[in-house]
Simulated assay, not measured.
Amino acid sequence: MILDVDAILFDIDGTLVDSTGAVERAWQAFTAAHGIDVDTLLSVSHGRRSADTIADFLPEPEREAAVAELDALELADLDDIVPLPAVAELLTSLPRSRWAAVTSGNRVLMERRLHAAGLPAPDVLVTAEDVAEGKPHPEGFLLAARRLGFAPERCLVIEDAPPGIAAGLAAGATVLGVATSHDRGSLTDATIVVGTLEEITVTVTSQGLRVSCG
Rank of each mutant, 00 (worst) to 15 (best):
D18V: 12
G14N: 13
A101C: 09
R25A: 07
L42G: 11
R146E: 14
G14H: 09
L42C: 10
A121G: 12
I54F: 08
L9Q: 03
I36E: 13
D77V: 05
G164T: 06
G134L: 04
G105T: 05
D160M: 03
L42V: 09
G164P: 08
H137S: 14
T180P: 01
A170P: 09
T180R: 01
H34S: 14
A88C: 04
P85A: 08
L119V: 11
Q28T: 15
F141Y: 15
G172K: 02
D77P: 09
H115M: 13
A76G: 15
R113Q: 12
A190I: 04
L156K: 02
A179K: 13
L197H: 03
A68Y: 10
M1P: 12
D183E: 13
V194Y: 05
V193K: 04
I158K: 02
I192M: 07
F10Y: 03
D37L: 03
L91W: 01
V131G: 04
R154M: 01
A29Y: 04
T53C: 02
A101M: 01
D71P: 05
M110G: 03
G177I: 05
D4F: 07
G118T: 13
L41F: 06
T196N: 01
A151V: 03
D77Q: 08
L142F: 11
V102N: 00
V178N: 01
T174L: 08
E159M: 00
E199Y: 00
L176C: 06
P138K: 12
V211Q: 08
E69L: 13
V38C: 14
V157D: 01
D52F: 05
A76N: 15
G195A: 12
L142W: 10
F57R: 05
Q207A: 12
R98M: 15
D52E: 15
I165E: 09
D13R: 15
L209W: 02
A173T: 14
D123G: 11
V102S: 00
L70S: 10
A29H: 14
A121N: 06
A26V: 11
I165N: 04
A117K: 03
F150K: 03
E129A: 14
L176I: 05
A132N: 09
D80L: 13
L16K: 00
S45T: 12
H137D: 15
V178A: 02
G208P: 12
G140L: 04
D183P: 15
E60V: 14
E153N: 02
A190G: 05
L197I: 02
V204C: 03
D52Q: 08
D183F: 01
F57W: 05
D37T: 03
D130H: 14
A7N: 10
R184P: 08
G35F: 14
D4V: 10
L148A: 07
L70C: 12
E153D: 08
D80Q: 15
A86K: 12
A117F: 05
I2R: 15
A173L: 07
P95A: 13
R112G: 07
P152W: 06
F57D: 08
L109H: 15
A116M: 09
E153I: 00
W27R: 09
S97F: 02
P162W: 09
D123P: 04
I54T: 12
D56P: 00
L156A: 02
A116D: 06
I81Y: 08
I192D: 02
A86D: 12
A166Y: 08
E60P: 02
